[in-house]
Simulated assay, not measured.
Amino acid sequence: MELYTKESFRNRDLLEVVIQKKEDNKNNHDIVEKQKEQILNTRRTPEVVSRPSSRMSSKQTSIQTEQKTKENNFLTQPENIAKNNVSQTIQSMAILCLSSSVVLLLDIYIFLIGTGDVPESGFRNGSLLTSASQYEDVTEVFTAFSTLVIILSANCVLVCSMQCFIASKVIKTVDGPERAMKYFRECSSSRLVAVVGFFISFPVFLLTLMLCVVLRLKRTPAVTAVVVLIFGTILGLLCMVQNIYHWYDEMSSASRGLPAYEDSNKDEDVNRDLNTLV
């Protein structure tokens, strides 16, 4: 029993010594690896180690701020696009409202002149209208056209001013630009009616002015004014048709994904545009 116990103790001591040596070797190996890693890091980034902490902190803060600004710009890009679209829509509607207001005021003034008392040198002395029945017929047509212009212009002023006012209030709320664009899309039908009514009211206004000239002026100035107004009305209608045609052409080309200029005629078109601008 004594021998067995002595041998067991001896074996245990030997095991402890071996385990301790292994732990020491492992610790030494870890220390050597850490030193190697430090040396490699110093070789890879010598500039970073040599720089002072103040410069490193300033560079890190500048990089962080640049990243934040890029993220903010990426997040706010749709909002900026919607805001630009809303501002452009409001500006165009404001111009349209101002134009229709001018036409409305002029038409009211012409309506008051045309529906006044019969002038002393009216259809009896040197006028294009030779009888009272002709005067009444022309007055009826004049009243109808003038009333139509008043209605169309007033409708355009009402719709455009209302949508501008409501959009300026909606844009101040949370997600304002997106909500304003949604409001414009939902109210596009009334806006289309107002815009079409304005473009119809302008040639009708010229016809109303022509009838007022016939009612109030004598033969020679009336004929001259009527001829000028007829040519002006035809020219305005042709300009409207040309603009609408090219607008429809460009919109259809954009929807089909076609380029703005053909490759063969691109340089010629650009040079021609520059020459016309000069």
Rank of each mutant, 00 (worst) to 15 (best):
V196R: 02
M210R: 08
R219P: 09
I200A: 07
S189I: 08
S190D: 13
F198V: 04
V204F: 12
C212T: 12
V204K: 03
S201R: 05
V196T: 06
V204D: 03
V193R: 09
Y183F: 04
L207F: 12
F205A: 09
R216Y: 14
F202Y: 14
P203K: 10
L211T: 07
V213N: 13
K182Y: 03
S189D: 05
V214H: 09
K182V: 01
V213A: 15
R219V: 15
M181L: 03
Y183I: 00
L211D: 05
F184S: 02
F199A: 10
S188E: 01
V204E: 06
C212K: 13
A180Y: 01
L207D: 05
P221R: 08
S189W: 06
Y183D: 02
M210L: 15
L192Q: 08
A222C: 11
R179H: 09
R191S: 04
P203A: 07
L192R: 08
R185Q: 04
R179G: 05
S190F: 15
R191W: 02
F202K: 05
K218P: 09
G197Q: 01
F202W: 11
R219K: 12
L207A: 07
R179F: 04
F202N: 06
L211N: 04
K218I: 09
R219W: 15
L215I: 11
S190C: 14
V193P: 07
Y183S: 01
